[in-house]
Amino acid sequence: MRYAKTIIYVDNVEEVLDFYYQAFGLSTQALTESGDYGEIDSGEVILGFASHPLAQAQFKQSYIRAQPKQPALGFELTLCCDNVSESYDKAVIAGAEPLMPPSVRGEGAQAYVRAIEGTLIALVNECAG
């Protein structure tokens, strides 16, 4: 077994795909004709985005909609980058909420932003693996 995909449910898939490109340089690799589902080129594990109505239809009462203006859900995405400060600034300019400015931790740098759909994003320059 291997970990293959993460899907985040959002209000507007195309808007979020554009944000991830503008903020992090991650390109769209797939988008359905209906615009209800899309994926970005994030490396080995697929990062997908699907519309809230798609999730609500599929999961019914087992689904709680994340709200960007509410506290973040209990997970984060970690993105490796060459320059944390530049990546942080680019993400904020693209519309990310600044949460923790770049700081040095151990031998690497780290920062946190919140994406437009509410996902916590850690930006680091050292990734294991």
Rank of each mutant, 00 (worst) to 15 (best):
I7N: 05
I8P: 04
I8K: 03
Y9F: 15
Y9Q: 11
Y9T: 10
V10L: 01
V10Y: 03
D11P: 01
N12D: 15
N12Y: 02
V13R: 08
E15H: 10
V16E: 11
L17I: 02
D18F: 01
D18Q: 13
D18R: 13
F19R: 03
F19H: 13
Y20R: 05
Y21W: 12
Q22L: 05
Q22Y: 01
A23N: 06
G25R: 00
S27P: 04
A30L: 09
A30T: 04
A30Y: 14
T32A: 10
E33T: 07
E33F: 01
S34Q: 07
S34H: 03
G35E: 08
G35Q: 07
Y37G: 02
G38L: 05
G38V: 01
E39I: 12
E39N: 13
I40W: 08
D41H: 08
D41Q: 14
S42D: 10
S42R: 01
S42T: 09
G43W: 03
G43Y: 05
E44M: 10
E44L: 13
E44I: 13
V45P: 08
V45L: 07
V45A: 06
V45Q: 06
I46S: 15
L47G: 11
G48T: 06
G48C: 10
F49G: 07
S51T: 01
H52V: 00
H52R: 08
L54M: 15
L54T: 11
A55K: 14
A55F: 09
A55G: 14
A55P: 07
Q56K: 15
Q56H: 11
Q56Y: 05
Q56G: 12
A57C: 13
Q58P: 00
Q58K: 14
F59G: 09
F59L: 15
F59M: 14
